[in-house]
Amino acid sequence: MISNAKIARINELAAKAKAGVITEEEKAEQQKLRQEYLK
């Protein structure tokens, strides 16, 4: 099960992506976390 901290990070990265200020490194982290969440 995914931790609350990881869910919070997913939401934080989603907000950054929506604002258009996300880095390529953060995009990769976001994809990794989303895949983990979906498992």
Rank of each mutant, 00 (worst) to 15 (best):
R9I: 03
I7L: 12
I10C: 11
E26V: 01
I2F: 14
E25L: 14
N4I: 13
Q31V: 08
I7W: 13
A17K: 06
A19Y: 07
V21H: 08
K6W: 10
Q30P: 01
I22Y: 01
E36V: 04
A8Y: 09
R34G: 04
I7Q: 10
A8V: 12
I22L: 05
E25H: 06
A19F: 07
K16F: 02
K18H: 08
S3Q: 11
I10S: 03
A19I: 06
E24K: 12
I7H: 05
K18F: 08
E24N: 12
R9P: 00
I7T: 04
E36Y: 08
N4D: 12
Y37V: 10
A15W: 10
A19Q: 08
L38I: 12
N4L: 14
Q35S: 11
Y37K: 03
Q30T: 04
E36M: 05
Y37M: 09
I22C: 00
E12N: 04
K18Q: 11
K39G: 13
E25V: 07
V21W: 09
A14P: 01
S3T: 12
I10G: 03
K27E: 05
E12A: 08
M1I: 13
A19S: 08
N4P: 14
K39R: 05
E25D: 09
A28M: 13
E24L: 12
A28C: 09
E24F: 06
A19V: 06
R34F: 14
K32G: 05
A14Q: 11
Q31Y: 11
V21N: 13
K39A: 15
T23M: 03
I7A: 06
T23P: 00
L13S: 01
E29W: 01
E36S: 04
E26R: 00
E25C: 06
I10N: 02
R9N: 01
K16I: 04
E26H: 01
T23L: 03
Q30H: 15
K32S: 11
A17L: 10
L38A: 11
S3D: 13
G20S: 03
N4Y: 06
K27A: 08
L33I: 04
K27W: 08
K6S: 09
V21K: 13
E29Y: 02
L33M: 03
A14E: 13
E25N: 07
G20W: 01
N11F: 14
K39H: 15
I22A: 04
Q31T: 11
E26D: 02
A28K: 14
K6Y: 09
L13H: 01
N11Y: 11
L13N: 00
T23D: 03
L33A: 03
K27P: 00
N11A: 15
E25P: 06
T23S: 12
Q31R: 12
N11Q: 12
A28Y: 12
Q31L: 12
R9Y: 03
I22W: 02
N11P: 01
A17C: 11
T23G: 02
E36H: 04
K18C: 00
Y37H: 04
K39T: 15
I10D: 02
Q31K: 14
Q35E: 15
K18D: 13
K32R: 12
E24R: 07
E29F: 02
A14T: 06
N4K: 14
A19L: 12
I10Q: 03
K6Q: 09
N11T: 10
Q30D: 05
